[in-house]
Amino acid sequence: MSRTAVMEERRANLSLRGLHKRYGSLHVLDGIHLDVGHQEIITVLGPSGCGKTTLLRIVNGLIPYDEGEVVFRSERVAAPRPEMAMVFQHFGLFPWKRLYQNIGYGLRIQGRPPEEIDRLVRRYIGLVGLDGFENHYPSELSGGMQQRAGLARALATQAAVLLLDEPFGAVDALTRELLQEELLRIIDVEPKSMIFITHSIDEALLVGDRVVVMSPRPGRIRFELETGFGRGREIEAIRASDRFQAMRHYLWEALRHPDSDPGPVPDGVSLRMEVKP
């Protein structure tokens, strides 16, 4: 793909422009600028409490903000819209609905025909590895299984933009890798834009086109890295690459020293520093 084609593809279809959010005297988000290109995957790393969930809720149109704006396909986002689907950090399953109904929830809200709902629900139950649990209530599932159900519910709506709040935080390491692979395969077939929050440096690099690193109190974007792994990724090949190792080391050092400049970037990695006004 030529450089211009890449630029064209990444033409922002979701823009956060100078977002500020305060809870009383707490300045949670301080001037967040972020452009999410068409079918681009942004992964967000940052310490607990730096405002990642708040950021996603604002993008989803769930809570108001104090300054700036969120623009999706040239429209200002003021309320939730069906083109975006959220995977909640707290799963957000309905305790009185069986797994099947929980995963079909978004589709049912959208009034899709029952055959279509059935087809999509079965497909995504399979993709997240929950076959055979259709009739279980959430309380009968493990935390990791509930989290996968939340992921399947969002995927099933086939929204153009996915907002994922630590979607693999409660699954074991092996399942996590399988789900990362699964997610990469899904987006190879059904490309989407994503804002993907994670606490895992490896995951941020494996899944993201761009890794955004945030700093806390007030929440700001410190810098962004382009991973440059493209589509059709092979997790094992990426892991083995020098580029991955170099970026991993760089991110690790940057997160360990939140107050100091992360220093020179590894060869071939492009870095964008946030310009502080």
Partner: peptide
């Protein structure tokens, strides 16, 4: 939190009563 889930999925008020 579930109220927020229903809002995120663009539920109507009637659907919110039914589901939540």
């Amino acid at each position: 939190m579930l109220l927020e889930v229903t809002r995120s999925f663009c539920s109507s008020e009637w659907q919110r009563w039914r589901d939540l």
